[in-house]
């Protein structure tokens, strides 16, 4: 019977969370997680760096801090507390783990790509530091031993560029989220993008719809 009471309490908590006046807030929070997940997937699948989700990340980070504080506050008194707080903490922790995983992976994926204007402030600082240490390492290891004209790291002559550029012709899988009134043209072919359908198309052809959010990379 104990178990049943605990369970009912949890349900009541949920109901409280989903009451009309708070329903909107809950919905907004859910949408944020959804948006993060989609941003993460798109970032992983797109050959270029996408816009940084500045305000979204801010909101999520502050909510993560709140939850961590909540866990810390309650776990001190755990010994004396009822059993169901334990379960509640476990659920919060699980969700934190899930969100943190996606968030970290999102940020790390972005740092593997590089177009400076879309980086956030922190990312730019990180990248500059990383690049400076890398050059220093290369210099001390072997570059200083090479003839001067071979020391450059951004040589584009000789038929081969040392600067990697995103391949916009790379095919990507995408799902159409909003009907796109205008057909897209590839070569001589015209392709109609219908809501809900899944396509494999080169990135350059649908790039602007990825930016506008009308299609989602999958």
């Amino acid at each position: 019977m104990d178990v049943d009471i605990g369970f009912d309490d949890i349900l009541r908590d949920f109901e409280r969370d989903s009451r009309p006046n708070e329903a909107n807030i809950t919905k907004l929070k859910e949408d944020d997680i959804q948006e993060l997940t989609q941003a993460w997937i798109s970032e992983r699948m797109s050959p270029e760096l996408l816009d940084y989700k500045d305000s979204l990340i801010e909101r999520l980070l502050s909510r993560i801090r709140e939850q961590v504080e909540y866990i810390e506050l309650n776990s001190i008194e755990l010994q004396t507390q009822e059993k169901d707080i334990k379960l509640q903490l476990m659920i919060i922790e699980s969700e934190l783990d899930r969100v943190n995983f996606i968030l970290r992976s999102y940020l790390r994926t972005r740092n593997d790509e590089d177009i400076v204007k879309r980086l956030s402030e922190h990312e730019t600082a990180y990248m500059e530091k990383h690049f400076a240490s890398l050059i220093q390492l290369y210099n001390s290891l072997f570059l200083s031993q090479l003839p001067q004209h071979l020391q450059a790291l951004d040589d584009t002559s000789g038929g081969q560029s040392m600067i990697e550029e995103p391949n916009f012709q790379k095919p990507v899988f995408l799902k159409v989220l909003e009907d796109i009134p205008q057909n897209i043209a590839i070569g001589d072919e015209e392709i109609e993008l219908t809501k809900g359908n899944i396509y494999l198309i080169r990135y350059s052809a649908i790039q602007k719809y990825v930016h506008s959010g009308d299609v989602a990379l999958i």
């Binding site: 790379k170 899988f173 899944i198």
Partner: peptide, 27 residues
């Protein structure tokens, strides 16, 4: 072909299974 492929109602798992092959061939 080189331009596009339509794959309605495929699930994520199924897409992932063919992704490496299809992306490199189409590329």
């Amino acid at each position: 072909n080189e331009s596009h492929l339509q794959l309605d109602n495929l699930s994520l798992m199924e897409i992932n299974e063919i992704r490496p092959f299809v992306v490199s061939v189409m590329g």
